[in-house]
Simulated scan of single mutants.
Amino acid sequence: MNLINNSTNQLLETAVSSSMTRQNTISQNIANVDTPNYKAQKTVFSHELNRAQEGQRLNAHRRDDRHVEFGGRPSNDAATVMKRTNTAYNHNGNNVDIDHEMSEMAKNQIYYNTLVDRLNGRFNSVRTVLGQGR
């Protein structure tokens, strides 16, 4: 049994990394709020993309593990950055809504802090089990 490198810790690590990607994307949007023709970006987690594409996916049966995956779910749960091109809020072609970006940043900060607290709790449990905690 691996106490440190288990599936839950790997999932939390991926979520923290994705949250950092989202924070960087939001920061870029805020920094370019007055840039002409700048198109806002958003970070989408792959499980959200999978859910949105569920009805459009073809499924295939692989007879051998060496065959290329076809129609299945991607193996990583990392975040993907996409441009929002279907809106324009300003006359100069810029589509950054500063109020929306600030609220998304606040939500992402709460999400990130929750993930870090959960990871910290898991590592404190391991320390306690090993006799290092109090």
Rank of each mutant, 00 (worst) to 15 (best):
S125D: 11
T43V: 04
K39H: 06
M105D: 04
R127G: 02
Y112S: 07
N92W: 04
V129E: 03
R62H: 11
K39W: 05
S103I: 15
V33S: 11
E54I: 10
L119T: 09
E13K: 13
Q53G: 10
D64V: 11
D97A: 01
P74E: 09
R63N: 15
K107M: 12
N2G: 11
P74G: 10
G72P: 00
T43R: 07
N92R: 04
S46T: 15
R51K: 15
Y111L: 04
L115H: 00
S18D: 04
Q23P: 00
I98D: 06
F123K: 06
N86A: 13
I98K: 00
D99S: 12
Y38Q: 06
F123I: 01
V33H: 07
L11G: 09
R127L: 12
N6L: 07
Q41T: 05
I30A: 07
Y38I: 01
E69M: 13
R57G: 08
V96I: 06
T25I: 01
T114D: 09
A106W: 04
N2L: 03
H91T: 11
N24Y: 08
G133A: 10
S7A: 08
H91G: 10
N59V: 14
R73V: 13
S125Y: 02
H47W: 09
V116M: 13
I4L: 04
G55N: 12
M102T: 06
V44A: 05
I30K: 02
I4T: 08
P74T: 11
A78W: 08
V16I: 15
S75I: 13
V81I: 13
E104P: 03
D117G: 04
Q28E: 12
T43C: 01
T14R: 08
A88Y: 02
T21A: 09
N50E: 15
L130P: 01
D34H: 08
N113T: 10
P74A: 12
T128Q: 14
A52F: 12
K42I: 03
V33A: 14
N92T: 03
R62Y: 07
Q132I: 01
N59M: 13
K107P: 08
A78Q: 15
S17K: 14
T87C: 10
S7R: 05
E101V: 08
N2T: 11
N92Y: 05
S75Y: 13
T35V: 06
N124W: 02
G131V: 00
T21G: 07
V126H: 05
D97M: 06
T25Y: 04
V68C: 06
N120Y: 12
H91R: 12
Q28L: 07
F70P: 03
R122P: 00
V44C: 06
N76Q: 10
I26F: 02
G133S: 11
L49N: 09
V16C: 03
H91S: 12
A106P: 02
I110Y: 13
V33Y: 08
K39S: 05
L49F: 14
D77F: 03
I98G: 05
H61Q: 14
I4N: 06
G133H: 08
V129W: 04
T8K: 09
F70T: 13
N32E: 04
M82P: 03
K42V: 00
S46L: 11
V81Y: 04
T25A: 05
H47C: 01
N9L: 01
H100W: 09
D99V: 11
